[in-house]
Design a protein around this nucleic acid. Structure first.
Length: 501
RNA sequence: GGCGCUAUCGUCUAAUGGUUAGGACAAGUGGUUUUCAUCCACUAAAUCGGGGUUCGAUUCCCCGUAGCGCUACCA
């Protein structure tokens, strides 16, 4: 049985960090590519950082971007997190007995020891070491305690209602070697490794103990996680050895960085996947972009569906250097995905954003909304822009009289052209108001009058849209016709003309 | 301070012991055009520094430098 089993193991601390999404995605792609399983385990050993509803939120986000799990936590019909799978529980706070049992074994075998040192002593020790420019490390004080001393201290702790922590007795010589699937061989000197706390005084394990025990019992074959874990990996390997277990394979992912090359963080813009989704980045675009952070197929293709990503994915194609999260490229990718949507699909995606912008979409026909959407499709970088771009379709715009005048023309000219156009449209039969007909008709009108395009079409466009930059006059007019009929066009042209004094 | 990782255009990256070092985003220029966007064409833009190995290194090795990570009873 060599089934590939990997896992995503977040702490339930609130929003979903874009870096977490990337880690989860890579683990997911790896599992799918290799007919393996991916497990979602929740690491809540830090009770202080726990956030209510974080697991549900995570599940929801993962679901919308299409990252699915085979085991562990799921969202049930009621929208609540539920566990499924034969290796549970998948919540670390429900596995305390398991950890205690194994810690007891380690202590008995002298591979771990109780540490009674106070926080004060630890702090003083650190200060002293830093002052002497020595690496701050536990000095092994309690490791050398005799059994009598241990018993005595233990009795005192119990009497005071306290628990000692348990530290790992790291070998004082030799080397521990990581054979990382991405970074290759990394060697650590054991004597430089700190005697890590494994069990905290609140009875909870630290990450290091819990991750090793859980990965072992959940039969994880590949640990895929962020590069920040490399320095603690030798401790994990040593723990596997202490338990007499075989360690899984490790694949550490390069970190994702801010534009200033610091670790991607909240203070420099959004890092929450929820926020990107809310702004109208499409899940497909987000996934495609995040997959390319540190990975690429070694071809010139850049647009990939989830399916294609699964087929192409390979841990060997992951870079070692840390990529910078560049929103500019995400914007481009999102606009590419927006253009691939049909007008019908896009209208549905856009509706919530129109509503947010105060548009009462129920009052407008789908035909009209689709026509608007078709025009904006090529201009949209994110869905949230739709409100500010399309206001003039839903209510007559306030037009700045100065804007109505083309750069090579005069206000008198603009005024008369607008009036002439209004009259022209008034007399134009309804069936001539399609996009194509409108263009030929208006161009014929211009030619007949011997006008030029600029001085006629510019004021017409501005009168209809109120904007310096917008879709063209024929496009705008055709859409307005669909929504309101030709009188709306005439009305806007007339009122624009009247605004010029 | 210690330990570790990394280093190709501004950004994401490709490639190779011998190439005009390729693509994409962004930028700029031009074309189309009533504006914007789209589209098309073009331009500019990189192998961190120093040593070695080699006929030849951007590629392999060493040193340096820089950046980042870790250095908690956080993960």
């Amino acid at each position: 049985m060599n089934t590939i089993r990997t896992r995503f193991a977040p702490s339930p601390t609130g929003f979903v960090h874009i870096g977490s999404l990337r880690t989860a995605l890579f683990a997911f792609l790896f599992a799918r590519k290799n007919q393996g399983h991916i497990i979602l385990r929740v690491e809540d050993t830090d009770q202080n950082r726990k956030v209510e509803g974080a697991v549900e939120n995570l599940l929801k986000v993962m679901k919308t971007v299409g990252v699915e799990f085979d085991e562990g936590f799921f969202l049930n019909d009621a929208g609540l997190a539920e566990q499924k799978g034969e290796f549970g529980p998948y919540l670390q706070s429900q596995r305390l007995d398991l950890y205690h049992e194994h810690i007891a074994k380690l202590v008995e075998e002298k591979k771990a020891y109780y540490c009674f040192c106070s926080e004060q002593r630890l702090e003083d020790l650190r200060k002293e070491q830093t002052a002497l420019k020595k690496p701050p490390m536990y000095d092994g004080h309690c490791r050398r305690l005799s059994q009598d001393e241990i018993d005595k201290q233990m009795a005192e702790f119990k009497a005071a209602g306290k628990n000692p922590v348990v530290r790992f007795a790291i070998p004082t010589s030799g080397q521990t070697i990581i054979e990382d699937l991405i970074y290759g061989k990394i060697v650590y000197e054991n004597q430089l490794l700190d005697d890590q706390v494994l069990l905290k005084s609140d009875g909870f394990p630290t990450y290091h103990l819990a991750v090793v025990i859980d990965d072992h019992f959940m039969q994880i074959s590949h640990v895929i996680r962020g590069e920040e874990w490399i320095p603690s990996t030798p401790k994990h390997i040593l723990l596997y050895q202490a338990f007499g277990w075989e360690a899984p394979k490790f694949a550490h992912l390069p970190l994702t960085l801010n534009p200033d090359k610091s670790k991607l963080s909240k203070r420099q813009g959004d890092v929450a996947v929820e926020d990107f989704l809310a702004k109208g980045y499409l899940p497909e675009a987000l996934i495609n972009f995040v997959a390319f952070l540190g990975w690429n197929p070694k071809t010139e293709q850049e647009i990939f569906s989830l399916e294609e990503l699964i087929n192409q994915f390979d841990l060997n194609k992951i870079n070692k250097s840390a990529p910078i999260f560049d929103v500019g490229k995400l914007d481009w990718m999102n606009s590419v995905y927006i253009k691939t949507k049909s007008d019908v699909e896009l209208v549905e995606l856009l509706k919530p954003y129109w509503e947010k912008a105060g548009v009462e979409i129920n009052k407008f026909s789908n035909e009209f909304l689709q026509a608007v959407t078709a025009l904006e499709k090529e201009r949209l970088k994110k869905l949230s822009e739709i409100g500010e771009r399309t206001g003039y379709y839903f209510a007559a715009p306030a037009v700045d009289p100065k804007l109505l005048v083309w750069k090579k023309s005069t206000s008198e000219d603009a005024k008369s052209k607008l009036n002439e156009l209004a009259e022209f449209f008034e007399n134009l039969p309804e069936e001539k108001f399609s996009r194509e007909n409108l263009e030929t008709e208006v161009k014929n009108f211009i030619a007949a009058k011997n006008y030029d395009n600029g001085s006629t079409l510019w004021p017409m466009r501005v009168a209809l849209t109120g904007l310096e930059k917008s879709p063209g006059p024929f496009d705008a007019a055709a859409v307005l016709f669909i929504g309101y009929g030709k009188q709306e066009i005439v009305k806007r042209l007339k009122s624009a003309a009247a605004s010029i004094i």
